[in-house]
Simulated scan of single mutants.
Amino acid sequence: MGGTGPGEGPAPGAGGPDRRRAERERRPPLRYRIITVSLLTVAAVYFLTPVYWLVVSSTKSSSDLFGTFGFWFHDPDPLGRLHQVLTYDDGIYARWFANSLMYAGVGALAATLLSAAAGYALAKFRFPGREGIFNVILAGVLIPGTALALPLYLLFSRIGLANTYWAVLIPSVVSPFGVYLCRIYAAAAVPDSLMEAARIDGAGEARIFSTVGLRLMTPALVTVFLFQFVHIWNNFFLPLVMLSDSDLYPIQLGLTSWTGYADRQPELYQYTVGGAFLSVLPLMVLMGVLQRYWRTGLTEGSVKA
């Protein structure tokens, strides 16, 4: 009478104190948490301070940029300053911005698809010379892009593509690191049994890759796309070597050209700072939009057998 009968669960709250005690025991000691939070705070301040300075400085005139305290506002007019940047020299900055979006967007998308196809093939198909090809790709990861800029310029000049959009786009679609990452991820995330089931159902290899492989490789593809986008967006040396027409410049090269004339036109200092502020906005938006795919990939990987 009054006992817990068969099939009845424990009374509400039973085991609650024990569970909370176990959770407290699993938590790291307070001093370790304080040290961790302190180090993360210092790192955050270190990385965010230049961004804060850029935001503050983009609201100032050229005279205020050098004559006032750098980390606080003085007569801020952000919309007016940015309007001056966008309308200077018949809106050349907007053209540079569009060029950078085209170089980085098209180049990163093409590099991601090429890396996915190459990595998937190296991971899931056996053919003569597979490991040799992969070793050559790994060697490509170790070669700095600056070492290839001059040979690429000579090659593109020979075929008549220097000083064109293609001179920046074509080298941007090759990502040895992307191929390496996609091969490692495809080998772990795309089960052979699932591919065999798709073949039994009559699916061809191209369809298996597009409907099964690409879906399962999404976190890796997002990583390759973001890394390649940032790399192309910040690339300075390759456009410097390849391009001589200012209408083809990306943002980085265009802002550098403004800096070269700033001694004769002091307002270009402010325009350069405002242009630099605008140039980081796409990277911030892209990181905020795509980071959820990283979290999804990590969660899926944590529950795989």
Rank of each mutant, 00 (worst) to 15 (best):
A167G: 00
L82Q: 12
Y165Q: 05
C182N: 04
H231A: 13
L30V: 14
A220D: 05
P176F: 04
W53K: 12
K124M: 11
G145V: 06
T68D: 09
P28G: 13
L226T: 11
V190F: 03
I184P: 01
Q291Y: 09
T299V: 06
G7L: 14
L48S: 09
F277Y: 07
A162W: 05
S193E: 12
S210P: 00
F236C: 04
A44G: 08
T36K: 09
A149K: 07
S172T: 03
K124H: 15
Y153S: 00
S279R: 07
V37P: 00
L290V: 02
L253S: 01
G105I: 08
M195N: 02
V42F: 10
V85E: 08
F277I: 12
R158H: 10
L216N: 02
I143W: 06
A139S: 11
V303E: 05
L30I: 15
I35F: 12
Q265G: 03
G15Q: 13
V37D: 05
L226F: 13
G16C: 11
D245N: 15
P219K: 04
F227L: 15
P239T: 01
L169I: 14
L238W: 02
N99H: 05
L113H: 05
A139H: 03
M1D: 15
L30M: 10
V273M: 11
G178H: 00
G132Q: 09
W72M: 14
Y46S: 09
N235V: 03
L255M: 07
L138N: 10
A108H: 05
T87V: 13
P219M: 01
R21H: 15
P176Y: 01
Q252G: 14
V285S: 02
H83E: 12
A11T: 14
G129Q: 03
K124G: 05
D77S: 14
G7M: 08
L214W: 13
R183G: 04
G16S: 12
L148Y: 12
G160E: 07
P10I: 14
R31W: 15
I232K: 06
S257P: 02
R292Y: 00
L194D: 04
R126C: 00
H231I: 06
E267C: 02
D75G: 07
G15L: 15
A98T: 12
R130S: 11
G202R: 10
P144N: 05
P144R: 07
A220Q: 00
R33C: 11
R292V: 09
V45R: 01
E8A: 15
H74T: 15
N163E: 07
G145P: 05
M1Q: 13
V273H: 10
V179F: 00
G16N: 08
L122K: 05
F227M: 10
Y120I: 04
G275A: 10
G91C: 09
T59F: 14
Q84P: 00
V85S: 01
Y269P: 03
P171C: 03
D77F: 11
A189L: 05
G80I: 12
S61A: 07
N234W: 08
D64Q: 11
V141G: 00
F177L: 13
L255A: 06
D75F: 09
Y185T: 01
A188I: 04
E196Y: 09
S172A: 14
P76T: 10
S100G: 04
I251L: 06
S62R: 03
Y93V: 08
G80N: 10
G91K: 08
S57A: 15
V51R: 04
E300P: 02
A43V: 14
